[in-house]
Amino acid sequence: MARYGMVIDLDICIGCNACTMACKSEHATPGGIFWGKVLEKEVGKFPAARRIFLPVLCNHCKNPICMEVCPTGATYQREDGIVLIDYDLCLGCRSCMEACPYGPRAFYGGDGAYYENGRTPFEEAKQHFPEGIVMKCNFCVDRVDQGLNPACVQTCPTECRIFGDLDDPQSEVSRIAAEKKARPLLPEKGLEPSVFYIGG
């Protein structure tokens, strides 16, 4: 069985947020909620100061603490490692948000319109999230099931994201992870994330 994962090359990410917008477009996430985003930080001192970018999303951990603390079983893991939320079971207790060190989850309290004047026709057509639940990146599971890459991977203009089967040593994602000594975020937390980073 596959274990899906992603490698992100920080050396070629330019912080354009095309992935952020592709994600919003693909899933019509409510205003103010980002399943994927690009964090930034200023490092160094003038005149050598520069900005670094860190694209983040759900890490679809092998040992997902969010699933462990969920009191209803709303958070679950597929055999291919993708961690999903069943909105019909979610209580909105947010214990998963407190337990996850990566911060990719968001609570949706309702009113998903991006603009003050109400929902756009796009939001009317695509935004069908129930209120009072927690949501997060689902690795574009519908696209993956059709053999496509997640929207963020498909859109990235610098091709800094590589998606694939981490359990297949011949896959591009596995080869690059091995060759370039990819590392996850906060490995000391022991959650075994499926999103790895190289460069930076």
């Binding site: 699933m67 462990e68 603390v69 969920c70 009191p71 209803t72 079983g73 709303a74 079971l89 979610c90 209580l91 909105g92 207790c93 947010r94 214990s95 609570f107 949706y108 309290g109 129930p130 209120e131 009072g132 639940i133 927690v134």
Partner: peptide, 22 residues
Amino acid sequence: LDLGRPERFWRAFFRPQTSWIS
């Protein structure tokens, strides 16, 4: 009242094997 979906509170009894909230 703090729950996003208080009417589903009874579902919180379903995962005592791993969840301290349960």
